[in-house]
Design a protein around this nucleic acid. Structure first.
Length: 560
RNA sequence: UGGGGCGUCGCCAAAUGGUCAAGGCACCGGACUCUGACUCCGGCAUCUGUAGGUUCGACUCCUACCGCCCCAGCCA
């Protein structure tokens, strides 16, 4: 039964009604991707919806490869799809199916329709079929082959299957209504001839079923109760139902349509995503800037964040575009709860603490996560020379600046309060080093005299830190709706979507980060050790999402 | 244009004839803070595409209009 705490939606209400009326006794859904590309976050919405419904209603969700077009599908995609669904946290158990496994059954049903005079073999070319389909306002014209006898149709259809005819020479069409205002009902094609081997059935077939003919029947075979798909299939529903009715199948799945996900600053179509990859605009399907599940995984997004996101955006029928900020907020939420904290200086500025004895190292024990003592601690070596963030020093501080500037104090997180006593510049006038003194009484608490320390900044030991490569990712596009109208999304790419920082310094405890391990680099953002490129001794971290930065916002407003 | 859908706060999205126009994100204040993070407090639609109508009462029913999306693949 539905969970009272979960937001309702129209699909749950339909299911509730079906259950209440006794139309169905259980809930069986399916996620039916075509294995012709990588899954993206829009698919994640559908996966969470279908598997989530099955989970909440104590039913089941099937994973079905909708592989009816051998020209586009590959096993590589089948594998990536399974990996992605699993990674998202869903389990289809033994219910993995392929539309291709139903080819024989579908064929037999097609013969039934032929015999019943409800389908016919059409010898027209694709062009001729298009020309006779009519337009939005004019009815179509019947094919000259529409009135063939069932016997002749059966013979022809069998010979189609036997491979007697070349590609495109004939089709099997449902005999419905060439004057229907719904174009999908104007004798839709059920089978086309394609002498092409299929990733699953090999060369067993040279005719392949169309989506409309395969989908509803596949649903029926599997006992699907609610066949959930996106809005563009709404006009196909009468056809979906027509086939089921003609076949007189006992089990009647019900098709329900919902609005697909759109995200700002993102493209979601497989075509555009493929173009980004093919044209080398990104580094591959799993480039961390891609909205593919593989890309988001490599980026470091935790699967629970994607699930929470799906929950937060809801399900409805109105076309909508969700702001990426909502996704980012969900990711921060998940990571804030789980990620250990650590320190990483992105653009190091050397600080010499003149009051600290040369060569002395104090090992400071700091928690991995302050509110989660069970996560343990790590040691921070405090030394005479440390690095701080260049941005955390201003020679002439603007108003409101709480970090370091000449004569002022800041706390080095988990360490001491230091005061800036000098600034060293190079010939060009660039600040290259700071001189400071520390207050030895401030290691564990506030200064004895009660003076307030406004800011705390992160730091690493100069001698006991490790260099790391940082990959700072930002949105791939600089416009909210790339490709809108007749614009070319290629011209809207964000040139700063990837910035590589080579000279960053991380605390020593981070040196051995395992690929895929996530951290919050305090005051900066959440990072993940890159799954492919991070190596012992040469760590590479990807920015998952930055921390909210109120100061940056204030500073930006001051500027205007 | 024929058919099918959809229009509630900047973005999502509840509400299914009875003072309830939820909630989240964003945004704006403020508190707290050894992360300018997190957390916390407060603000944010007299109004539900528009115009009429029905009703004691309408976001929810009716009518008309306006706007947006989908359909003319032997793609899914």
């Amino acid at each position: 039964m539905p969970d009272e705490n979960r937001p309702t939606n129209f699909i749950r209400q339909l299911i509730d009604a079906d259950l209440a009326s006794g139309r169905v006794q259980e809930v069986v859904t399916r996620f039916p991707p075509e294995p012709n590309g990588y899954l993206h976050i829009g698919h994640a919405k559908s996966i969470c919806l279908n598997f989530g419904l099955a989970r909440d209603y104590g039913g089941r969700c099937h994973l079905r490869m909708d592989d009816t077009n051998p020209a586009k599908e590959e096993v590589e995609f089948v594998e990536s799809i399974k990996e992605d669904v699993r990674w998202l946290g869903f389990d289809w158990g033994r219910h993995e199916y392929h539309a291709a496994d139903y080819f024989e059954r579908l064929y037999a049903w097609a013969e039934e329709l032929v015999l019943a005079g409800k389908a016919y073999v059409d010898d027209q070319s694709a062009d001729a079929i298009r020309d006779s389909r009519g337009t939005l306002t004019e009815p179509g014209r019947p094919s000259p082959w529409r009135e063939r006898s069932p016997a002749e149709n059966l013979d022809l259809f069998r010979r189609m299957r036997a491979g007697e005819f070349p590609d495109g020479s004939r089709t099997l069409r449902a005999k419905i209504d060439m004057a229907s205002p719904n174009l999908n009902l104007r004798d839709p094609v059920m089978y086309r001839i394609k002498h092409q081997s299929h990733h699953r059935t090999g060369d067993a077939w040279c005719i392949y079923p169309m989506y409309d003919w395969a989908h509803g029947q596949s649903d029926a075979i599997e006992g699907i109760t609610h066949s959930i798909c996106t809005l563009e299939f709404e006009a196909h529903r009468p056809l979906y139902d027509w086939f089921l009715t003609q076949l007189g199948l006992a089990h009647r799945p019900r098709q329900i349509e919902f609005a697909r996900l759109n995200l700002t600053y993102t493209v979601m179509s497989k075509r555009l995503l493929a173009a980004l990859v093919k044209e080398g605009l990104v580094a591959g399907w799993d480039d961390p800037r891609m909205p593919t599940i593989a890309g988001l995984r490599r980026r470091g997004y935790p699967p629970e964040a994607l699930r929470a996101f799906a929950e937060r955006i809801g399900v409805a029928k109105a076309d909508s575009t969700v702001e990426v900020e909502l996704l980012e907020s969900t990711v921060r939420d998940a990571l804030n709860a789980s990620a250990p904290r650590a320190m990483c200086v992105h653009r190091p500025l050397k600080v010499v603490i003149e009051s600290w004895p040369e060569g002395e190292v104090e090992r400071i024990e700091a928690p991995w996560k302050q509110d989660a003592p069970e996560k343990g601690t790590r040691q921070l070596p405090f030394t005479r020379e440390v690095f701080i963030e260049r941005d955390d020093f201003m020679e002439v501080p603007v108003k409101g600046f709480k970090r370091l500037s000449p004569g002022k104090e800041v706390r080095l997180r988990y360490g001491y309060v230091v005061r800036c006593t000098g600034v060293v510049k190079d010939a060009a006038g660039e600040v290259v080093e700071l001189r400071c003194t520390h207050d030895p009484d401030t290691r564990t608490g506030a200064p004895k005299d009660g003076r307030k320390i406004g800011g705390t900044i992160h730091w690493v030991s100069a001698s006991n830190s490790v260099p790391a490569t940082l990959r700072l990712y930002d949105r791939l596009f600089q416009v909210p709706n790339p490709g809108a109208g007749d614009s070319d999304f290629r011209t809207q790419l964000n040139p700063a979507s990837l910035a590589v920082v080579e000279g960053a310094r991380i605390e020593p405890a981070l040196a051995g980060a395992a690929p895929g391990e996530r951290f919050q680099f305090e005051r900066k953002g959440y990072y993940v050790a890159d799954a492919k490129d991070t190596k012992p001794g040469a760590p590479v971290f990807n920015l998952i999402v930055s921390l909210r930065d109120t100061w940056a916002k204030i500073a930006a407003q001051e500027k205007q």
